[in-house]
Every structure is written in C-alpha cells, then in structure tokens.
C-alpha cells in the first residue's frame, strides 16, 4: 500500500521536474531538472521491479547525459561571449 503512495508522490515530483525542465528560461536550471527527472525515473524503475533498467537509467540517464549537456552548454556560452 505504501508502495502506491510513494509511487504517486514520485510521479507528481517527476512531472513537476519535467515541466520545469521544458519551460524554464535559464538553460542550466533546465538541464539540472532533466537530470533529476531521469534520477526519479530510475527510482520508479526500481519500484516497477526492474533493477537492471534502474542502474542503466541512473548511470546513463542522469550521469552521462547531464555531463554531456553541461559540456556543450559550457562551450556554447564560452563561444558566444568569447
């Protein structure tokens, strides 16, 4: 029963984060939000009894994607004022 309640909370959190990621003006906030989204997604995967997928999502989704985003963002901001 508690499982369902936590799931509901998680889902509301992930939706809020997704909206922030998409709507927010500042890019940095958006990228962090998308990282958090994929983090919550890996937790949901755990709840759905899919450990493999949770690990992948965590490692690749929140880890590497966010890093790549920051690298690219960093470079673009450097180039625009450089």
């Amino acid at each position: 029963m508690i499982l369902n309640i936590t799931a509901v909370f998680l889902c509301i959190a992930i939706l809020v984060m997704a909206v922030i990621a998409v709507i927010h003006k500042k890019l940095v906030i958006a990228i962090i939000a998308s990282g958090v989204v994929s983090l919550f997604a890996s937790i949901i995967f755990l709840l759905l009894a899919a450990p493999d997928v949770a690990m992948t999502e965590a490692a690749i989704g929140s880890g590497l994607t966010t890093i790549i985003f920051f690298y690219v963002l960093n470079k673009i901001r450097k180039e625009s004022n450089g």
Binding site: P51, D52, M55, I60, L64
Partner: peptide, 17 residues
C-alpha cells in the same frame, strides 16, 4: 546480479569523466 555491460561501461565512463 542486475547490471551488465552497458551499466558497467557507463560507470567506468563516469569515472573517467
């Protein structure tokens, strides 16, 4: 155990990063 090539590789890559 859960996990495998992709996850291990991703972890190694994050280590490198």
């Amino acid at each position: 155990t859960p996990g495998g090539g992709f996850q291990g590789g991703a972890i190694m890559a994050s280590g490198m990063v």
